[in-house]
Design a protein around this nucleic acid. Sequence first.
DNA 1: GTTGCTGCAAACAGTTTGCAAGCTT
DNA 2: AAGCTTGCAAACTGTTTGCAGCAAC
Lengths: 143, 143
Amino acid sequence: MDYELDLAEIEKKFYNYKFTPQRKTILKVLFENKGHHLSAEEILQLSKEKNSDIGFATVYRTLDLFEELEIVHKLHFGDGCSRYELTRTGSSHHHHLICLNCNQIFEVKDDLLKKLENNIETQHNFKISDHRLHFYGYCKNCK
Amino acid sequence: MDYELDLAEIEKKFYNYKFTPQRKTILKVLFENKGHHLSAEEILQLSKEKNSDIGFATVYRTLDLFEELEIVHKLHFGDGCSRYELTRTGSSHHHHLICLNCNQIFEVKDDLLKKLENNIETQHNFKISDHRLHFYGYCKNCK
DNA sequence: GTTGCTGCAAACAGTTTGCAAGCTT
DNA sequence: AAGCTTGCAAACTGTTTGCAGCAAC
């Protein structure tokens, strides 16, 4: 699971935006929870532990901004809230396993999809910019 | 796009539940909009056109029931609401292309994923029961 | 006739927005 | 100093729930 985005690189993306303490805190939380698919609520709680003054609105606004800057990806697992993960350069080649019993989320690496994407782009004349692949089932502890 | 569930077959699933006019109406709406990925709101509107007396609560409760009876699949495209499609027997092998500009949803057939599923089941000891694959990008009219 | 089903309205949860005050640059 | 950014609270949207009446079997 190679994260190629480092803090210095990310900071550059803010040349047009202010790099405020709240934004730094949220970024830190995301970095400290790589692979955890945090929800806005979880991010708020973890941020509060670091920086007492932060509210929901800021978290949502920051995550929207981060998405625009391609720092995070927004994910929809169907559990009622959006979840966020740090963008990775290899991000087009990993998927999620969602356990229907314990709700844990696991990750899988994969390169098989590239071929499928190519097929689709030519056969359907559709320019693919991103994808989401979720497998629902039961993990080794729950099956 | 072969739908193998027919009305007679579905009716059998109701042996334990009442086959009320509202449920029939919603089923009809789903059948008349195959491949349209309707939201609860859209289903409500279309149902109202057929049967003046029906409310939101009934639509949601019915769709929950239909999901339980495996008559529909619930989908999350990240547009803020759940969407529903009739279950098909070939349903484990079709995916969705979501146009980021016009929001239209296209479908793709595919068998490539079976191989990937098998890999995952053995490598991650995870029993897969369903999956969702969404491609985001731009359709031929929008790119 | 029972029991499950329905509509309504109120409750809920996650997210968004308006605004005045505050902080970054 | 200027304007973006923040926190708060109120507004919103999609969905769920409680309850009394109704209808399917």
